[in-house]
Design a binder for these strands. Structure first.
Lengths: 351, 351
DNA sequence: TTGAAAGCGATACCAG
DNA sequence: CTGGTATCGCTTTCAA
């Protein structure tokens, strides 16, 4: 049996409060007494106040939760997620807060339980489909949160980018280069995970909100250019991984009139597309490929993409959580994005 | 004021135990009563049992802690660390456990406090210098842990690789290729972070245990080959980052008789070395560079390196923690490593 | 099935 | 500066 604070108090012959003070408020007792208490504690093997008990009493935990809608092992597959967490961690450390990583099971009930059971003082909600239910659960707990979802309520704290405009910018880049037959590559395009090829008209109710926004942004650009929907194809990747991107892209090989460009909803998918093209031989130079996020590997691969500030997004989210601005209206922060043109995009080849 | 379990009990007109059971032991009451309780709770906005209070009472938290000796934002700079955490996460999810990421401040007292305050049921200790003090703190708390340090006590749970032998294997590879003038590149080679060049004789008491083991392994290989110490140079990087690796490597340019190979203690450093060489022009092909870990970018860069199973290391650590083997002796698990020869290592150029 | 009572281990207020 | 007292919010025998 581990000794408790009480045991220490009895051993030294002082009250529990005094022992507690020795740990948490050194200024409340003589340093001599404090030393005597600490020494006795050491002797007895008392490890200091129990974190859980202390949290209960104090009413706060000292940790912020980061909510993921997927298994962590999957989330970390995307360097963008890692950088986001890194940013959160940075801010959390500055506030002496630890990080509780909470993966949410896919079923609503499980997700609710996970949120209800998470010992945290607040949450950063990363990239969530089916978000509303989760936010409600957090609200019920009366805890603060910051979301990165694409559709915050007016009074929610939020940090994000203009997904649609950003997506628009890459797509417009391709249009300017002359591309007219284009494939959109995204994951969670359909309610069920699937790999393959769709006509754009068949795509409605994209479940993943970010994918939805990005696809919409792509489509906007084509609409603006007065291009026919029929020039668009949608490739659906089973998930947001390089392999899935490659798998989905292979479907292009079977098309009679293949597109001249692949617009991916993330860099991870775009790199996969590049893999698939490379593997199919000479196809590469004829085809433009663009990504989204600008992860480190994008630079190496020469991928044209949209940059969004990953660490900053995480950092800002955590800061918004840990010291909220006075003014509520300052609680929604829009981060800038940049189109980064590299070598994977170019003019349409003459045929 | 959030409603409590007690308030729900009063509202429904049952005892607190019954409400508690409605949440945690559905089989202890009629499903009809249970429904009534849950419904009332919903009405009142009761978010379910408070996680902290529950933890205190039950005596466990439902989270495992991962201890880092550095800021998380720095740790995540190394893809190897990310993959390790991913592995831990995988196992944790299977056991319905969340992950508490705990960065340890550099000072011993701060580190102790961080460990004492972490609300976790046990710890995976990732890559730690000054480890012993930390392990002692965990022991005092009476919590289980798994370490990945290089020198476990006989009765500690441990997962790792034979650092020294693995390092030996790459070094031997270079020796076989004919290299005799070699630079060892590591971080935390000196007690203070520093960038630069040392003679190998000056290197004693390397503070970072992993770096120490790896350098020792490198040295072994040269000793075995009967090579003189004097052929060895040590490059010290300020930290384990690509940039620091590059910076340290630039020191080579000033050497009258530069080495023919750079043996790095991690892939991150090795990639930095490659950067530096590339930047100095034609140097590349003349010089062999090797890494350690086999992160994803190593493959892309064609880096010769030693592969260790990153995710598996994390997964195994968490499993060892979450369901410990009956037999204590099964608590120490040695993972295999492989020498992966790619294109950055080759025979010594004739001069 | 249900409920009463006894904590889990600590902190904070307030009087001395 | 020190100590008594009342919680924090829930779980868990154990008896009814």
């Amino acid at each position: 049996m581990k000794p408790t604070l009480r045991a220490v108090a009895e051993a030294v012959g002082v009250s529990r409060s005094t022992v507690s003070n020795a740990y948490s408020r050194p200024d409340q007792l003589s340093s001599e007494l404090r030393e005597r208490i600490l020494e006795a504690a050491r002797q007895m093997g008392y490890p200091g106040p129990d974190p859980t008990a202390r949290s209960l009493r104090r009413g706060f935990v000292g940790a912020i939760g980061v909510l993921f809608t997927s298994r962590l092992s999957y989330a970390f597959t995307d360097p963008f997620a890692v950088r986001f967490v890194t940013g959160v961690a940075e801010a959390a450390e500055r506030h002496d807060s630890s990080l509780l990583l909470v993966p949410l099971p896919p079923d609503a009930a499980g997700a609710r339980r996970a949120v209800e059971n998470a010992a945290a003082d607040g949450f950063c909600v990363y990239c969530t489909g089916g978000e509303e239910g989760i936010l409600d659960t957090i609200r019920r707990r009366g805890l603060p949160f910051v979301t990165t979802s694409s559709r915050p309520r007016a009074d929610d704290r939020w940090v994000g980018i203009d997904e649609r405009a950003a997506a628009h910018s890459v797509a417009a880049h391709l249009v300017d280069l002359g591309h007219r037959r284009v494939a959109l590559l995204g994951h969670d395009v359909l309610p069920r995970a699937e790999t393959g090829l769709l006509r754009v008209a068949d795509v409605t109710d994209v479940p993943h909100p970010t994918t939805r926004e990005r696809l919409a942004g792509f489509a906007d650009a084509f609409a603006t250019a007065g291009m026919a929907w029929s020039g668009l194809t949608v490739l659906t990747a089973a998930d947001n991984t390089r392999d899935a991107g490659a798998a989905a892209t292979r479907a292009l090989a079977r098309m009679p009139e293949p597109p001249t460009a692949v617009l991916a909803a993330s860099d991870v998918l775009a790199l996969g597309a590049l893999d698939a093209l490379r593997e199919q031989g000479g196809w590469g130079p004829q085809l433009s490929v663009t990504g989204f996020d600008d992860i480190a590997e994008a630079a190496t691969a020469g991928l044209t993409t949209v940059r969004q500030p990953a660490e900053q997004k995480g950092r800002t989210a955590a800061e918004l959580l840990l010291d909220p601005p006075e003014d509520t209206r300052a609680g929604q922060i829009l981060l800038p994005t940049t189109l980064v043109v590299r070598t994977t995009s170019g003019p349409v080849p003459r045929s």
